[in-house]
Design a protein around this nucleic acid. Sequence first.
DNA 1: TTAAATATGGATATATTTTATCCATATAAT
DNA 2: ATTATATGGATAAAATATATCCATATTTAA
Lengths: 162, 162
Amino acid sequence: MKLSEGVEWAIHSCSLLAALPTGAALPTRKLAAYFELSETYLAKNLQLLSNADIVTTRKGPGGGYALAKAADAISLLDIVEAIEGRSPCFSCTEIRRRGPTGIGDEAYKRPCGIARSMWKAEKAWRDELAKVSLHKIQAMALEETPDAQLEKAKIWFEEALA
Amino acid sequence: MKLSEGVEWAIHSCSLLAALPTGAALPTRKLAAYFELSETYLAKNLQLLSNADIVTTRKGPGGGYALAKAADAISLLDIVEAIEGRSPCFSCTEIRRRGPTGIGDEAYKRPCGIARSMWKAEKAWRDELAKVSLHKIQAMALEETPDAQLEKAKIWFEEALA
DNA sequence: TTAAATATGGATATATTTTATCCATATAAT
DNA sequence: ATTATATGGATAAAATATATCCATATTTAA
Ligand code: FES
Ligand code: FES
């Protein structure tokens, strides 16, 4: 069980976008450059964010990506689900119905106890992710980023938005 | 993010083993037959349970698998970790250090806020799994299994252990 | 003592998923 | 018009999950 790389990429990208001045946007090329990531593959992940209405896009020169809503209205869960999808990690294949003791499908009404337990745990995970806003992520990043990096980031932004 | 099939197989297998009379054991062949699963692949998963000390084994005729401890001393988390391993689902690749604004590795002491948040959610998942004992799983199964199946299972057991 | 039944671990094969790239197209700004 | 950009589809390459096979060690039962 591993989350895809794209989840980390997407969170960092959103966190960076959260720092943009109103009205500004960053294109794939610049986002990829900032994090030193594959431009084409990052583009795919940004598309997922776009389809999930987490970011908005503007085509053409000067265009790019920006957050679609306030950073405190976007949660880690939103981002994780945009990238990973919404299907449960645990999937019950109804093993209980199989084999020599299994009986007709109509006999099994509720989801089995195993699935219910696994799904409950998964809900705890999602609930916890839902509690963390992008705003909080950005605030933590701001606080823990070394001053030297903040300086360089400031200069990079000026150039990128010029 | 998907849990491997083996997790479901392992939980069902343990739940069945929990129903064994003291001293009895079931070999791979019979477990696979009961659930109509691939015998060779189930064997691999049972090996993982064995290495994790969730089940004990006895080689030779009349041998097989049995629980290594009481069913209420085994949790879903134990089983999930035996099959899936203990490494975190989210892995921080330290993207923050990269790119044109990144500075020397020595500047980043604590894990980043993104990773801390993701790991916290993961902990909530594991904690929830740890709360569910195999005993509970077995009790739920017993309660929700149709009577017709319980009958057939009883007969199957008698034959299997004869 | 021997034969049969079983688990174990290694090697390997196959299928599926993830990661990554490329391209043709649509769209917007200058 | 030209340039910069996102989008979605097709495809390729790499990694992982699924599945099988085999040689070996061990244990039981005859
Ligand atoms: S029957 Fe296997 S998890 Fe539901
Ligand atoms: S730097 Fe990316 S999650 Fe830690």
